[in-house]
Simulated assay, not measured.
Amino acid sequence: MNPIDDFLFVKHNKVTYNTTSLIQLYFPIIGSDAAAVYEYLISFFDDGRHKHKFSEILNHLQFGMRRLEEALVVLTAIDLLELYQTRDSYLVKMKPALGNEAFLADPVYRRLLEMRIGEIAVKELEVSIPEDARNISKKFSDVFETDQKTNPTTAQAKPTFDLASFQRLMARDGLTFSENEKADVVGLYAIAEKYQMNWFEVYGLANATAINRKISLKRMEAKKQQTNKVANGDFTNSERIVIEQAKSLSSLAFLKVIKDSRKAVVTKAERQLLEDLAQMSFLDEVINILVLYTFNKTNSANLSKPYLMTLANDFSYREIASAEDAIVALRHSPEMQKKANAKASKKSNVPEWSKQEFKTEASEEELAALEALIQGMED
């Protein structure tokens, strides 16, 4: 988009500028630039009769192209504008601002406004009907006769995120928002819209990626962006089993299995370490691979935080997002390559790094328990 590019208004799309809604509800969210662009477009609407250049807007509002582009992005995101691109120009479709009740009834818009001006100020903007008032209004079908079996059709409202149903499931399952509930609500809506998910699908994702029963938007996003770039055929049988178990257990359950095999218990520091890894946006399946590999390399009944965090930082830098990616990264690490070269004459179909778990110094009981881990963890 350049200043010399043309744009046209969509015909028969005149919208009235709702000063009250724009100032009371939208302005704190969209800011002065977006509000000025919206008012300009409303004021100069010409029913699509002539082409205009974006430079006209810049000249009138006295700011540059970057600010105009950012303002248009905000207006389209908040549903005050739709912008279309044709072969030789752009089309601008204006949309009316929501009224007070409709705006505040939208859980996402309400949270956005609360984040800007506070809950008390938003509460003051609510339409208030006395509790003892009885609604005696009539329905359409009570007054107007029609041969149709259904009520007359009306324009479909933009679908909203069903926050009430989402929160009912949260209460049932003991799931909570993070310390910033308003940001969580906005983030949940953004994920639903971005990935075309309904509220129930978003809840399932939130529940599966929660950290200590608290919603984690970063882990939700990581789960949705997760891609297994390596085909199943690239893994040995042992690696597939490790991947399967890493994906099937939570990080705490996975750690408990390994600790039980070493006749040890999970410490408070280890629980905190798992949470720290989750806060780094790692999914449990990646954390499980990190944990298993760390135990293999340190030969201890306790997790080595320095070793684990060094590995985790490397994974974070390389954006490792799945158990498959983690195993491939470890398989091709410099340390594993060095060992592989040293033992080139001894061929084996067992991956070098996972083989460390079941050899040499382990006791018979420990070996048996870890073997059970690989074969399915039936206990």
Rank of each mutant, 00 (worst) to 15 (best):
M65N: 10
L22Q: 11
A97Y: 08
L303G: 09
D314K: 01
F9H: 04
R168V: 11
A329M: 02
R110Y: 03
H52T: 05
F177Q: 09
F282R: 05
A344Y: 05
E361H: 10
D47N: 15
L290V: 03
K194G: 08
P107Y: 06
E101H: 11
V127K: 07
A253H: 13
I42H: 08
D260H: 06
I258H: 07
L274A: 06
S216C: 05
W353T: 03
L91M: 15
H52K: 12
Y38L: 15
Q375C: 04
A34T: 13
A208H: 13
R49V: 14
A190R: 12
E378A: 06
L80G: 09
F200C: 02
K214N: 12
F7R: 01
E270G: 12
L163S: 09
Q85I: 05
R87K: 07
K194H: 07
K158L: 06
A344R: 10
P28L: 04
A34K: 10
E244H: 05
E365W: 04
T310N: 07
E70P: 01
K297P: 00
G233I: 13
T146G: 11
E239P: 03
A34R: 11
A190V: 01
A269F: 11
K11M: 03
Q356I: 04
E126G: 01
Q272V: 01
E193D: 11
L163C: 05
L273P: 00
I211G: 04
K339T: 00
S281N: 15
S21E: 12
E193K: 15
F254E: 02
R172V: 12
G187A: 11
H60I: 01
D33W: 05
